[in-house]
């Protein structure tokens, strides 16, 4: 690529077609799920995240890139780390943040999602970060709003920013994603984290193995499916983690047992808990990931959760950098 002054001081669209091919162009105005990201776009997110991590290592962890932008976090479901992570990310980029918790707003008076959103639009929000118990709610929001929508978890469907920070954490340790064996253990059926991770991991060329009780797997998995990435199924946890490069366990929600999908918690622990002896079957340098909050002693043993192979705390730290990169890519450029 050539350097010209014009490009430096006020870059115009590159005239050189080769330059266009090499320069990844960001074309998303929303982050709804990872299934529509190309490997090049994910690489662009990661190189931007590298730069954001450097910002976080400075004595003054704040840059003026999003000065004057307003970012609203609209959470219809409880969350600590995701919301705080987004709020910190926005603040580190000098954006103004507003949090709307649905328990303390007109939602309790029966205001609909669309009404709440159009109020936010009228108030001048540039980005709305939304978590909702209904799958697809952020897609609805994206249709009605001019602001950029970021999906912070919708129902059982997707949690794209979590998947990207998981992927980034694996890449940080392994240097690549392609060719790695990644095992996801637990309640795949109800896990938006697992769904988004399956998309992003397979997009980047990892081999994904799922390990779960049959009642907690989506129906029809394992057959050739047009609209779902190719994954392997292995119900036996010891065979599943065999020579894995990374093992991800999912939080088991106790309601699953109450609703009859599991005979007992004790049986789940016996068959599916990631413990020291099971982890020993993976590669010696295999990573242990968990999207949090962790039920220690249920899906993961305390020794593994806090052990030397666990990167659970790094996942949280990387979450801020990944979300800074995404917010910058969404609204850092041309104003909307």
């Amino acid at each position: 690529m050539m350097s010209t002054l014009r490009q430096k001081e006020a870059p115009a669209l590159p005239k050189n077609p080769d330059a266009t091919a090499k320069t990844p162009v960001w074309r998303h105005s929303h982050i709804l799920d990872v299934d529509d990201f190309s490997p090049q776009e994910i690489e662009l997110i990661f190189s931007t995240t590298d730069a954001m991590k450097e910002v976080l290592s400075r004595p003054i962890k704040k840059v003026p890139a999003l000065r004057g932008k307003t970012i609203v976090t609209l959470f219809y479901e409880p969350s600590t780390r995701t919301r705080i992570s987004f709020e910190l990310a926005a603040k580190n980029l000098s954006a103004d943040t507003v949090h709307l918790s649905t328990s303390a707003s007109s939602v309790t008076k029966g205001e609909s999602l669309i009404d709440s959103l159009s109020t936010l639009q009228a108030l001048g929000a540039n980005v709305v970060v939304i978590r909702h118990s209904q799958s697809g709610a952020p897609y609805l929001a994206a249709r009605y709003l001019e602001a950029s929508i970021v999906n912070a978890g919708d129902g059982w469907h997707a949690h794209p920013t979590q998947a990207l920070l998981d992927l980034y954490t694996i890449r940080e340790h392994k240097g690549k994603i392609k060719g790695l064996k990644v095992v996801i253990i637990g309640d795949i059926l109800h896990s938006r984290v697992a769904h988004s991770n399956i998309w992003s991991l397979t997009t980047m060329g990892a081999a994904v193995t799922l390990c779960a009780p049959p009642t907690l797997l989506p129906a029809g998995l394992g057959h050739e499916q047009k609209h779902f990435p190719k994954v392997s199924l292995e119900p036996d946890i010891e065979r599943a983690v065999e020579s894995a490069d990374a093992v991800m366990t999912l939080r088991l929600q106790r309601e699953r047992q109450q609703s009859g999908l599991l005979p007992s918690l004790r049986e789940y622990v016996q068959l599916y808990q990631l413990n020291e002896s099971r982890l020993a079957r993976a590669k010696p340098d295999a990573l242990v990931l968990h999207p949090g909050p962790v039920n220690e002693g249920i899906e993961i043993s305390p020794g593994v959760a806090h052990g030397p192979q666990s990167v659970i705390d790094q996942q949280v730290a990387n979450g801020v950098a990944v979300r800074m990169a995404l917010l910058y890519l969404l609204v850092g450029g041309k104003s909307i």
Binding site: P11, L13, S47, A51, K53, E54, A65, Y328, G333, S335
Partner: peptide, 18 residues
């Protein structure tokens, strides 16, 4: 991340690591 013309650029500059 410090540019004063970020809002008016058609093409977002690619952030590199300092």
């Amino acid at each position: 991340l410090y540019r004063d013309d970020l809002a008016s650029l058609e093409l977002k500059p690619i952030v590199q690591r300092s």
